[in-house]
Design a protein around this nucleic acid. Structure first.
Length: 485
RNA sequence: GCUCGUGUAGUGUAGUUCGGUCCAUCAUGACGGACUCUCGAUCCGUCGACCCGGGUUCAAAUCCCGGCACGAGCACCA
């Protein structure tokens, strides 16, 4: 009897309660830096769900903090572009929380007027100790009039930063203390990089996000499970307003072996201190760095889609992304010779008639048609590591090496001697291959086969690995950035 | 500590809703081999897992109970 073999489901699981054409999702980063590989999970998963249901994605900049994680003005455009690069099309709607401030402040007032919010003038630590005992603070019983008065004082700057916050009334006996009378808005007098000093009171994530999700008609929220309590807080607010909370899904925490965790503010500080050369420093787990090295957006997409949506905390390796990237770029990457740590040799014909031209395939399986044509002269290079009594010059000849003389034994491959890549010096140009590593960069000086090269080209250096051409200067060495094997 | 969540091979993942088609899927990895004038690609093979203990049942990765482990939240950050 034939057993039916188990199969692996492909693609994301269906979204609960999704109606074709009516799904609205959102991706809401803080523009305090460009996107990291961690963010890309949100971009990929949300955009994939949207395309599964012909829905939309709202790209929302959650930039309501001017103090702890202040926005970086450049980051808005970086993120917009990186989103587009990852998805292949722009987000359907793009909004900034900071430009929507009047709306949030209006809803805050409505909350106070509705009596389900109040201005609390306790210190954070006092409130916390009351809260932990399920005890109301004195401010909680203030009349609506008093609350509105205090609210006005918060907004006109009469009440100082740190001296008041607006809270959402909840059941103080909620089992989870974190949810009890949670803070919705606070005072921040620091100027906002985008809107300046227009506002004294700024909403916190849980309030801003909750109101905006409702206003944008978001039907499904997919977010990290660290935000589970946010869902619960926001649901309480929705109940007050009489709104229906979106379906919510979560993913677990992700660590990448090669990078560890990734904190945008941490990187920002390190860059400012000069530990990195910028956001696209190839040692950083940012999208701009991966892109610069030659990772394809398709590889990043496939990677996250294969992981799918689970609440497990995972620790993954760049090897997985590299493997996917390899299969994508292998067929369209031309081959070139790159000689690290070169050794000069001179060809001794030994009575053989040496052809003056050699045609080498641009791609071994001819996925790319055509040849690189070498004019053979006597002087050529091999890597010092390949130096041996007898080697095979790839695609050319068996040679015996004595000192720096390479005597041709045969053009045919006659034995199992090691194959080495090589390069006639008339086709060589100085190049340095930079490989990012944990403690800096490793630089291999050498010579690259100087045929049809251009900046941004991703090629496979024979017997070395994939690399991207960073720069071809007028004079001096070509700069190569190592991608992976 | 309190609250919430998660446990399938080295890594990641499918299967868990409605127990049998599961001596458990796929990818990656490691190892071995074939092929190839790259340490690339391709092909073949091998390795390797249901957190633990009870229970229900003819039958449990799947249901129930009890442990254990790990993670997150408990910010006037997002």
């Amino acid at each position: 009897m034939e057993r039916q073999k188990q199969q692996k489901r492909v693609g994301l699981k269906p979204l609960p309660n999704a109606i074709e054409g009516e799904v609205i999702l959102r991706f809401a980063p803080n523009p305090n830096g460009p996107l990291t590989i961690g963010h890309s999970r949100g971009v990929v998963i949300n955009s994939e769900f949207a395309s599964m249901y012909s829905g939309k994605v709202v790209l929302r900049f959650d930039d309501t903090d001017t103090r702890v994680k202040p926005p970086l003005p450049d980051a808005y455009n970086w993120i917009k572009d990186e989103y587009e690069w990852l998805v292949g099309r722009p987000a359907d709607v793009i909004i900034r929380a900071s430009e929507r401030m009047p709306v949030y402040l209006d809803y805050a007032r409505k909350m106070l007027e509705g009596g389900f919010g109040y201005v609390c003038r306790c210190t954070a630590s006092n409130f916390k100790s009351l809260r932990d005992n399920s005890t109301a603070c004195d401010c909680r019983d203030n009349s609506i009039d008093v609350n509105i008065q205090d609210w006005n004082s918060m907004n006109d700057g009469t009440i100082n930063e740190g001296d008041a916050v607006v809270r959402v009334k909840t059941d103080l006996d909620l089992p989870n203390p974190a949810l009890r009378d949670w803070p919705a808005l606070r005072i921040q007098h620091a100027p906002h990089p985008m809107v300046g000093e227009l506002y004294k009171v700024w909403p916190l994530l849980d309030f801003q996000s909750a109101v905006e999700d409702h206003l944008q008609g978001v039907t499904h929220i997919v977010r990290g499970k660290d935000l589970m309590d946010s869902t619960r807080k926001q649901t309480l607010l929705y109940e007050h307003f009489g709104w229906k909370y979106p379906e919510t899904l979560y993913w677990g925490r992700v660590k990448v072996h090669e990078f560890g965790g990734f904190s945008t503010s941490g990187m920002r500080e390190d860059i400012n201190q000069g530990k990195f050369n910028g956001w696209d420093d190839s040692r950083l787990p940012t999208i701009s760095a991966l892109r610069r090295r030659g990772f394809q957006s398709q590889a990043i997409r496939e990677f996250w889609l294969d992981l799918g949506l689970t609440q497990k905390d995972i620790s993954i390796s760049m090897q997985n992304i590299e493997s996917i990237n390899s299969t994508i770029i292998d067929s369209n990457s031309e081959r070139r010779s790159f000689i690290r740590n070169p050794q000069n040799l001179r060809l001794e014909p030994n009575g053989f008639e040496v052809p003056n031209k050699l045609q080498l395939l641009r791609h071994p399986d001819e996925k790319i048609e055509g040849f690189r044509e070498w004019k053979i002269i006597d002087d050529f290079l091999i890597e010092k590591d390949d130096y041996a009594d007898e080697i095979r010059l790839k695609d050319f000849a068996d040679v015996a090496i004595d000192d720096n003389l390479a005597t041709i034994n045969s053009f045919e491959r006659t034995d199992k001697r090691a194959i080495a890549h090589w390069l006639p010096i008339n086709h060589s140009r100085e190049a340095s291959l930079i490989t990012p590593s944990n403690d800096g960069f490793k630089t291999d000086e050498g010579f690259i086969e100087n045929i049809d090269l251009f900046e941004g080209m991703i090629l496979q250096l024979e017997r070395v690995g994939f690399a991207r051409i960073e720069k071809i200067p007028e004079n001096g060495a070509i700069e190569l950035l190592y991608l992976h094997g």
